[in-house]
Design a protein around this nucleic acid. Structure first.
Lengths: 171, 171
DNA sequence: GGAAATTGGTTACAGTCGTAACTGTCTATT
DNA sequence: AATAGACAGTTACGACTGTAACCAATTTCC
């Protein structure tokens, strides 16, 4: 999976310090994520013109019900500004409505409208369909291993300083 | 791993169509890729102010030797414009030099300068060190599974229409 | 009770990205 | 040889992003 390429397009050099970008984990992860996301985006972007932050906001509101912008950001790890813009855009489309919180007037409670909920349900269906598609393409083993690998990464993320060992042993 | 959150920040809703964003594969992949990349970027951005496209361009040139912008794009799956900008910026920093191709004057052959090569070697060291760090954090099993999962995704990417089955069986 | 610090949310700005349009060169067809 | 199409690379533009600065409401703490 390395040093391939268009043959004549590249003249490989002999003595250089060896590093295989294709095999570099961060790079592979990025490519995979991009590919998987893009393929899915193609599905839903075709139907509604929705950006990923918007999609995530819908997902959060749809599955949790009423919540605040800050909570959405925390849940989907999106920056304040991203959430703010997504919310505004979804509001313009009447898929979401805000209401000021009685007890704390800084806070806006966000909620899907009836129309928004309808869209959300379609989104969920699309997502489930895509999950099935992925499962089929990746195969049983591939899917399972990928998920196990992601579990490991998530453990690492949750505990940045010393997440090692705890999953030792055989593969 | 779902429906957590700040407790009181969210009032879960009962009857809604159930969809767990946290468990959605494209989303998980993105988060993982982002986290892993960011952690690495912290390492090398601290040392040199280099963007990811620039880093990738350096990596390609460093490991393949002289090549064209188009070839870099193909290798690292970067858009023409991204490559173009990265090349210009690296050229400004004198880490890379261009030379017009004799036989086809549309083409520019790109090559690292001595300074560029020196930087590249440092980058490679950093990358290897990070790989070791990751391996330690992820643990043997986690790393192996993640790589296997990525293999599966790459197979899928290479053959978008019918990549399924071929890896069937147990996990 | 009131200044200071915190928090929810928006906005101005600068940087990055991809689409599309462009320049210049090469290849194919006639 | 001339025109049309393809290809390498750059650039103008609009869309999206995060940093930082901002406003308003609220909590903290003297």
């Amino acid at each position: 999976m390395s040093r391939k390429l268009d043959e004549e397009a590249v003249q490989t050099v002999a003595g250089t310090a060896d590093f295989d970008l294709d095999a570099f984990l961060p790079y592979r992860l990025n490519r995979a994520a991009e590919a998987v996301s893009l393929r899915f985006a193609a599905h839903y972007k075709a139907r509604y013109a929705m950006t990923r932050p918007e999609w995530r906001t819908m997902a959060a509101l749809g599955s949790y019900g009423r919540m605040t912008a800050t909570a959405i950001g925390a849940n989907a790890t999106m920056h304040k500004t991203k959430v703010s813009r997504a919310v505004k855009s979804l509001e313009d489309r009447r898929w979401l409505k805000r209401s000021l919180d009685e007890s704390d007037r800084r806070v806006e409670n966000l909620e899907l409208t009836a129309a928004g909920l309808r869209i959300y349900r379609e989104m969920v269906d699309l997502a489930h369909a895509y999950e099935r598609e992925l499962a089929e393409f990746l195969g049983d083993a591939g899917l399972r291993q990928l998920e196990a690998g992601l579990d490991a990464v998530e453990v690492m993320m949750a505990n940045p300083q010393r997440a090692a060992r705890r999953r030792g042993g055989a593969g």
